[in-house]
Amino acid sequence: MVDHGARRARVNQLIDAEPRVVGGSPGSIGRLERLCTALTRVLPASGVGLSLLVEDNHGGTIAASNATSRALEELQFALGEGPCIDAYTSRRPVLVADLQAHGSARWPGYAPAAHDHGVRAVFAFPLQVGAARAGALDVYRDEPGPLSAESLNDAFTFADVAMDVLVDSQNGDEGSKARADLDDVLAYRVEVYQAQGMVMVDLGVSIDEAMARIRGYAYAENQSIGDVARDIISGKIRLDKDTHEL
């Protein structure tokens, strides 16, 4: 069994290995674009797009593997419906292995339009950690059929890494280099989530900013996130309002 940390590390390596496009975006957005193209190769898929959303389902596309995927992302916002919006709203993945058979009733506007773009299957993965959520990662395929267990696994890991990039970008970290993965053993994750809630109250910030602060602290102190979380819970450390940001 490959652990979660190792999976994330592998995904970061794949993104690093992804060629930089001439004229590609710098910083976090550039990294997310390469994340999209890397996932396209790994699955494989005909395209991958990543959009950010806010509460009232407005949003925008931040990265895509190609122009068609970008158009498919934007289409959802133009029509106000689609798998990405549903994944965000329902806080769960939306996996549609046969868009023609199962998409039309659900998305009367989006499904036929996506079909015209050659999409036969679409899989949307929410970018979220508990109550913190940013948007969704969409995978498009030009033939119907489910993702294999391994492909699903990869897609979930890419979504987790995308969330990391977005959270870290709040710390002013432009994602120019891959982070050594600081997540440690899974058992401590319960504590990581509890610590996020604590820092949220301690600093009077949102839950996603609390996540960013914990990660930023872990990087700065070169500690694992699990260790930092345990110290926050035990009261050994308390992040300050003016904790130095990276």
């Binding site: 806080r91 769960r92 929410p126 979220q128 950690v129 508990g130 109550a131 913190a132 319960v190 989530y193 509890q194 610590a195 996020q196 809630g197 604590m198 820092v199 949220m200 109250v201 839950i207 819970i233």
Partner: peptide, 14 residues
């Protein structure tokens, strides 16, 4: 994910 939300809320309430 619901379980994660509950852990976050536990931390906040604590």
């Amino acid at each position: 994910n619901s379980r994660i939300v509950i852990e976050q809320a536990k931390g906040a309430l604590a």
